[in-house]
Each structure stands twice: as structure tokens, then as C-alpha cells.
Design a protein around this nucleic acid. Structure first.
Lengths: 201, 201
DNA sequence: CTTGTTTTAGAATGATCATTCCATTAAGCT
DNA sequence: AGCTTAATGGAATGATCATTCTAAAACAAG
């Protein structure tokens, strides 16, 4: 039997994700989602139990389509801090080219407005942070195998520092169109990484 | 004539602020504010035009009661990076002692859920960031007058870096009760400051 | 074209929201 | 005491929300 999923149906997650990303969970209404996705109310509810479930699916979709691909080079065997530098540069230039203004990171935005009791959503966010930190940890550890300057606990602290700093970058520049301070910040971060890994004190 | 402001009226801003801080602007209802402040609906509307105006007043109150006092030692003449270290330690231990769990920074939380077109609110947030960055800039500049290692533009970049990093700290640890990574992050930041200011490369 | 299914537009429902309003209460003052 | 004003609790209003429902439209296959 019968009809295939419509085009708009296939892009539902894409468009819902960008809507939540731009506006934030609480501000987005089902009417907004209907308008932005081109899928009817009934269509959305036939695929998802409700707004909350759709949002969770968008968080996963965000992982698959944005976070995963951008972290992949860092997660590769043998990747060093050059991969982190490239990650930052790609991040910034993709914002630059989108032209729509900066909208930060969906996970960071969500974290800032999360109900402390909402453990389901929190778990999804923590999974993201862990993945990011693990990737940075591996790359920094690889790099440290060359210089062997840092202890394992220092490598770990540095990976946490980088993760949290990038979260600061996403938070601080959510509404900036000027990319200069963004690049400045990325440069500072990379310079610090190099000093920590290679310069004796 | 007449009655003085009631006790609850005097604490209106205090309690409204903590409610917005914990729950976030969009989630807080006027009913929540009535319950949390102990002031009646009419009372709130007689002092403020509406929820939005009250929120703006809370942002200013946050500056006066939290941000200002905590930045004051850094803003003092001759303050160096020791003042920044103390600022971080005070920040973390005040979170620790509050016991209510971490609720990040009101300005950072607000920034993450701000409508891009809401320029009024944005201006209040930018004022905060500028003040914070200016304070750090002065302290780092003072410190650099001793070592004279950094150029003026490097001092500025470092101040921006510290500001944004602390924003990352507030964002990342909004929902953490474990203070260890928080202190770890603060230590890393201070160590980086010292290396940048005093270690030759 | 006809039959069966999917999808849609949009109305209906019931909850919740910000804001306004008012009758009642409580406080200060003479 | 009585007068005046501040403040309250809570009802009324009108908007908006998430969710459900339905009749019509769109599509596939016989």
C-alpha cells in the first residue's frame, strides 16, 4: 500500500532542529513548528508523542548532523591539537558563512534554560559534553605522547578546560555577528594549549 | 499620610531575582512570582509595568547585589591577578555554601535564551559583560606593569579570554553539585594567567 | 474512476498565561 | 473612635498554548 512520506516529512527533524536552535525550547510553539517545518499538526503528532519528544529527537539529530561530523577528525586515531585548531576554525567559518547570525550551540543553550528536575533532557546534554571532552582528551593525550610533559591528570584537566572554554565561546558569542573576537578567543585557546603541552616553566 | 511599604514589598526584587535566576524568564509565571515573593498581583503591577519590566529591574538588581560587590576588589586601584583568583574562589565557595545547587549566572542564562530581536535586554547583558571585561582588563594590565611581558593588545585579548572562560564556567556547571571540576577549572585558568604574564616562551 | 490510506488545514478543547479589576482587609494618622 | 490610603486575595478577561479531532484533499494502486 500507498503513499511515501512527503518531502516535508523527511525534513521535519532538520527544520524543527533549526527552529529550536534559533528560538529555544520554551519560546517555540507548535504553531511555529508547523510553519517552519511545513508539516501539519497531525503530521507532527503522528511521528512524535509531543513537543518534548520532538525536542529530544532534535537533540539526537543535532548530535548526528552537527556535533558528530565536526568532532570526527578529532576522534580519529592519532589526531593531535592540530585537529582541535581545525575544529575551531571550521566552527567559526561555518557560522560566518551561514549569514543568519550566530546561534551558539543547541546543547549549551538548552543547558542554560533546563529545569533542574528534568533528568531525561539533562542526560542527553551530559552525553554530549562527555563525547566532546573524550574527543579533546584523546587528541591532547596523543599530542602529549610526543612531548611527554604532562601527567595523565594534567591532560585530563586540560581536556576539561578546553571543553568548558569552548562552551564559553558558544555562550558568549551567541548573538554576535562580529567574528573577530571569536577568532581571537580561538587563537588564545590554541596558544595556551601549545604552551601547556610544550613550554617548560 | 499612610502606610510604609510592607516587608515583602522591600524584598520583592530579591525574591523575584532568585526566582528568575533559578527557573529562567520564560518558565516563571506571575503566579510563581506571587508565591515566591509573597507580594500580591496588584502589588507587583503597582511597582512594575509587567513581567518584562520586573525582569529588567532584576537584572539591574543582580548587578547591584551580586556582580558589583564580587567585582569590586578587582576594580580597586592596583589590583592584580591575585584579586582574580580570590574572585573565583569566592564565587565557588558561595555556590558551595548556598547548598541549593548551582544556578550559574543570571546574565549567562539569559543570554542563552534571548530573542535575537530583544535589543533592550541585550543591552543590559552587554553592559554586564563590558563591566566584567573592563575589571579583568585593569587587573591584568596592572599585573603586566610588573612583568611588562605583554603588549596592550595581548593584555586585551587575555582579558577577553578570561571573561569568556568564566562565562563557560558558569554555563558548564549550572547544574553540577560537584565542586571539584569547578575548582579544577579555576586553577587551570589562574595557572594560564600566570604563564601568559610571567613565563617566557 | 474507485477504493483505501495518508496527509492536511483548521476547528474544538481545556489548560495556563499576563494583565486588569474590585471588594475586603489592614495599617497609619488625627 | 473615624478617615484615608496601601495592600491583599482572588475573580474576570482575553490571549495563547499543547493536544485532539474531523472533514476534506492528495495520492497510490486496482
Amino acid at each position: 500500500m500507498s503513499r511515501p512520506k512527503s518531502e516535508s516529512r523527511a525534513a521535519l527533524l532538520d527544520n524543527a532542529l533549526s527552529t529550536f536552535w534559533k528560538m529555544g525550547y520554551h519560546v517555540v510553539s507548535m504553531g511555529d513548528l508547523v510553519r517552519e517545518t511545513g508539516v501539519s499538526r497531525g503530521g507532527i503528532y503522528s511521528d512524535f508523542k509531543g513537543k518534548r519528544e520532538l525536542f529530544h529527537a532534535c537533540l539526537e539529530h543535532y548530535q548526528d548532523t552537527f556535533v558528530g561530523p565536526s568532532l570526527a577528525p578529532i576522534e580519529e586515531d592519532g589526531a593531535g591539537i592540530a585537529a582541535i585548531a581545525k575544529y575551531l576554525e571550521t566552527l567559526i567559518s561555518s557560522i560566518e558563512q551561514s549569514g543568519e547570525g550566530v546561534i551558539g550551540c543547541l546543547v549549551v543553550n538548552t543547558s542554560a534554560q533546563l529545569d533542574p528536575d528534568d533528568t531525561d533532557t539533562r542526560a542527553l546534554l551530559e552525553k554530549h559534553f562527555k563525547r566532546q571532552e573524550d574527543a579533546f582528551h584523546a587528541a591532547i593525550s596523543n599530542e602529549n605522547n610526543i612531548s611527554k610533559k604532562l601527567s595523565e591528570s594534567e591532560v585530563k584537566a586540560l581536556a576539561q578546560f578546553v571543553t568548558t572554554s569552548i562552551q564559553g565561546l558558544a555562550s558568549r558569542f551567541r548573538n554576535t555577528t562580529d567574528m573577530k573576537p571569536l577568532r581571537q578567543y580561538a587563537d588564545s585557546l590554541m596558544q595556551i594549549l601549545k604552551v601547556q603541552l610544550y613550554n617548560d616553566q
